[in-house]
Design a binder for these strands. Structure first.
Lengths: 142, 142
DNA sequence: TTAATTGCAAAGGATTTGCCCGCTC
DNA sequence: GAGCGGGCAAATCCTTTGCAATTAA
């Protein structure tokens, strides 16, 4: 798997490119859909043994600030991380086994149809918009 | 605020109706959109002083199992709770002040329009479907 | 009565912070 | 060489669990 473009983007963020960060990037790329920090750690450790979990957390936070990665929460309190810049997508989260699949469509009706088409039985959905409320835009939206 | 219907629903779940549980129900009803356990605790404590945070957590879990309440996660690791059974809706989460408003519309395009109409500047959105994947439906979807 | 429920204290899981050493630039 | 980045241990935050006392039904 080619991590060069990602490495380039990461360096553009201003930070140094270390073996650990490269390992995290590669793990993210290999794992795909919304892995947890621990899953990333386990995978990245195969690439760079001795890599600490704390380093993974710090690396992910750095990448998130650079816009390279986003953190999101699905149905539990564990943060999940994904590379930004791929095709915009959402998720199908299995309540039974925890499997997460990605879904390219974005509208509810179409999404539900797409989900059904792949044999996924939808029992609930969630849709959130993030941004700045009127009050916070007024002065200087921090 | 009338909590009788809620009380009825809660009792139908089989559990006992205590002053603590009534306080949590009332707090949920008063607080509205997706408060955290701590916010619920603070509010419910005004109704029933001495109420413990642990009791709030346990009560919320009980209610969630009875389908009276749902727990959800927005942009952080803290669980948030809402009464079920109201109008189906989603959320507008302010990244600056943390304010959460509810949004009745469910489709992206319409939702974005609705958000804009109330002066909310959307910078990101999330849409997740929950349910059972094909593999988990097959044997006995637990 | 008697099992469900509460409150306190302590445990747990995930994530963050402090500190110092090592490595990238 | 200077300062960013890494690793370890400890701290923190939110949530859950253990246990004895209390209370609804």
């Amino acid at each position: 798997m080619n991590t060069a473009p990602l490495t380039r983007r990461a360096r553009a963020g201003g930070g140094r490119m270390t073996a650990q960060r490269r390992a995290v990037l590669q793990a993210l790329q290999e794992l795909g859909c919304a892995p947890t920090a621990e899953e990333i750690h386990t995978r990245a450790r195969h690439i760079r043994s001795g890599l600490g979990l704390v380093t993974v957390y710090r690396t992910l936070e750095t990448f998130a600030q650079e816009g390279l990665v986003q953190r999101l929460f699905l149905d539990d309190a564990r943060g999940r991380y994904e590379l930004m810049g791929g095709r915009h997508h959402h998720h199908l989260v299995c309540l039974s086994c925890g499997t997460i699949q990605s879904l390219n469509r974005c509208f509810l009706a179409a999404a539900e149809r797409a989900a059904r088409a792949r044999g996924f039985k939808v029992t609930a959905h969630r849709f959130e918009l993030f941004g700045y409320c009127r009050r916070c835009q007024a002065p200087a939206a921090r």
